[in-house]
């Protein structure tokens, strides 16, 4: 299963554009939404291989989105990898709760587009050879 489709939920225009530009250049299909509500709706309407999820989002926080998708009895996105991207390292349990439902929890300031692509490639490798 090769990773092809990516949903980027990111409210910062510059950061969102930067990731989308690089990911598209690398050959991925990328959809980008800028607020939490749209993010949750889009994630439920279409199956993505990877969701890049910001935490501090307008309308609905990343924690809530992840909880809505994976916090219930049923995992609504069982085939999707979730990469949490944030610049606000949470000091509390919400971070631990997110880690439980996410495939990676990364600090944006440390993750240049190049590094992000290498992370996604690693997820892909792992999916092929579990």
């Amino acid at each position: 299963m090769a990773i092809k489709t990516i949903l980027c939920i990111e409210d910062d225009r510059f950061i969102g554009e930067m990731y989308v530009r690089s990911l598209k250049k690398a050959g991925y299909d990328v959809d980008w939404v800028v607020d939490g509500n749209d993010g949750l709706i889009t994630a439920r309407n279409k199956q993505y291989d990877v969701i890049l999820l910001d935490v501090m989002l307008p309308e609905r926080r990343g924690t809530e989105i992840l909880d809505a998708l994976r916090g219930g009895k049923e995992d609504l996105i069982p085939k999707t990898h979730v990469i949490v991207l944030t610049n606000f390292q949470q000091d509390d349990e919400s971070r631990i709760a997110m880690q439980k439902h996410a495939d990676a929890y990364l600090i944006k300031a440390e993750i240049t587009p190049k590094k992000l692509i290498s992370v996604i490639e690693k997820l892909d490798d792992r999916a092929v050879t579990p």
Binding site: Q99, A102, D103, Y105, L106, I107, I111, K115, K122
Partner: peptide, 16 residues
Amino acid sequence: NSNEGLINEGNGWIKN
């Protein structure tokens, strides 16, 4: 250690 599956890449996630 319940987060074994996470990617430990870059200055990534921090476990409790």
